[in-house]
């Protein structure tokens, strides 16, 4: 399996403060990985680094074949990030925001209607300025952008936050559908049970690095337990810097 995300001792700084302090991990194409860890562990920073938004200052970091130390920009059309912010323009309607995002990413406008429909954003809400939408509607609009863009790498930061029960189910379906089309998905979430039921693997982050890669990169066996139990040696996946 080719690597969609391959980091080796990757370091990212904010001023002198390390956001990522030597991350080593390898996620294959088509995999769904759940990033978990306490607040400040580096989950959001890792997702932003994978999107090319955070510079990597040392180590090695490749995403979808793009070397992030050389060029962080050329991969951006191939990734979709759902962050804490919606990345939408408050004055523009949901539909206008989606249209702009599709045009900017050179995605066909024919995806606009299906994306709105998939997230339940038809009717009056599609013409509502994002600034007047509820938190859940904004979240749905941000997800509609991802659906419309159909990226090769989905980066989801707390994707269930702010959504109602139906919206959460839609997120789960989108992850499953993305995986079915061969896309790679990284989910950072504190909703362990929900995220791990979607994930092929769990990656635990602590203090800006993957916590003991040998023990933390567990392969989730089918319907995952909420917290991975000590796994059999065969269930562990070792990741080293020589893994390309």
């Amino acid at each position: 399996m080719n690597s969609a995300v391959s980091f080796c001792e990757a370091v990212s700084l904010s001023g002198r403060f390390p956001l990522l302090s030597g991350v080593t991990l390898d996620v294959g194409e088509g995999e769904v990985a759940h990033l978990r860890g306490p607040n400040g562990a580096g989950k959001t920073s890792l997702l932003r680094a994978c999107a090319g938004l955070l510079p990597i200052v040392s180590g090695r970091a490749e995403v979808l074949g793009h070397d992030l130390l050389e060029d962080r920009q050329s991969l951006r059309r191939e990734v979709g990030l759902l962050g804490h912010s919606s990345f939408l323009y408050e004055e523009l309607s949901v539909e206008d925001n989606l249209r702009f995002a599709l045009r900017a990413s050179r995605s066909p406008l024919s995806r606009l209607e299906p994306a709105l429909e998939r997230l339940g954003l038809q009717g009056r809400v599609r013409r509502t300025p994002v600034g007047r939408c509820s938190t859940g509607q904004r979240r749905r609009a941000a997800l509609a952008v991802l659906v419309g863009r159909a990226p090769r790498l989905w980066l989801l930061d707390e994707p269930h936050a702010g959504l109602d029960l139906e919206g959460r189910s839609v997120v789960d379906e989108l992850v499953t559908e993305a995986k079915a089309t061969g896309a790679t998905v990284l989910i950072a979430s504190h909703e362990l049970e929900r995220a791990e039921s979607l994930a092929d693997r769990v990656i635990e982050l602590v203090g800006g690095r993957v916590a003991t890669p040998m023990a933390s990169e567990l392969v989730v066996p089918g319907p995952a337990p909420a917290v991975p139990a000590p796994a059999a040696p065969g269930a562990l996946r070792e990741v080293g810097c020589d893994v390309a």
């Binding site: 990734v79 990030l81 962050g83 900017a104």
Partner: peptide, 19 residues
């Protein structure tokens, strides 16, 4: 200011538009 609200500036960077 319109790019500062709700992370729109990051959205612009992520869009892949030519700088």
């Amino acid at each position: 200011a319109i790019e500062a609200a709700d992370g729109a500036r990051d959205g612009l960077r992520l869009s892949g538009l030519d700088a």
